[in-house]
């Protein structure tokens, strides 16, 4: 059974130049456990691959149950010259929340 990041976490996107950063914060401890284990930089890059070749870096803030993803080359050249309708990539937080993750019981020994 897979779950969506949306089901266990909330997110916010910010921009600096051609780099997007998206924070993902779990609602509770159980959600954090899944998030921390499954929402890897590789998985995020795979989901954003149509927008950017990467790289993606992941920072962990366990005391806040939060991850911070820094996604380079994701903003069409940056807010000032991007041709995108959302040059800041403010809406990219919504894309992050559509990532499907293996659920609580997967990946553990039976």
């Amino acid at each position: 059974m897979s779950i969506l990041v949306y089901d266990i976490a909330h997110a916010r996107a910010g921009d600096k130049g051609n780099t997007s950063n998206i924070s993902v914060t779990a609602y509770d401890a159980a959600g954090w456990e899944v998030l921390h284990r499954e929402l890897t930089a590789e998985r995020v890059l795979a989901h954003f691959r149509h927008l950017t070749p990467g790289p993606v870096r992941r920072y962990e803030l366990p005391q806040l149950r939060a991850l911070n993803f820094v996604i380079e080359n994701a903003l069409g050249g940056g807010v000032t010259r991007s041709l995108a309708i959302d040059p800041h990539g403010k809406s990219l937080s919504a894309l992050m929340l559509t990532i499907a993750l293996p659920g609580h019981n997967e990946g553990q020994a039976a």
């Binding site: 909330h10 997110a11 916010r12 910010g14 921009d15 600096k16 780099t19 950063n21 924070s23 914060t25 870096r57 803030l61 806040l64 939060a66 911070n68 820094v70």
Partner: peptide, 8 residues
């Protein structure tokens, strides 16, 4: 959310 806004 705001702590990590535009933070790398």
């Amino acid at each position: 959310e705001q702590l990590l806004y535009e933070m790398h």
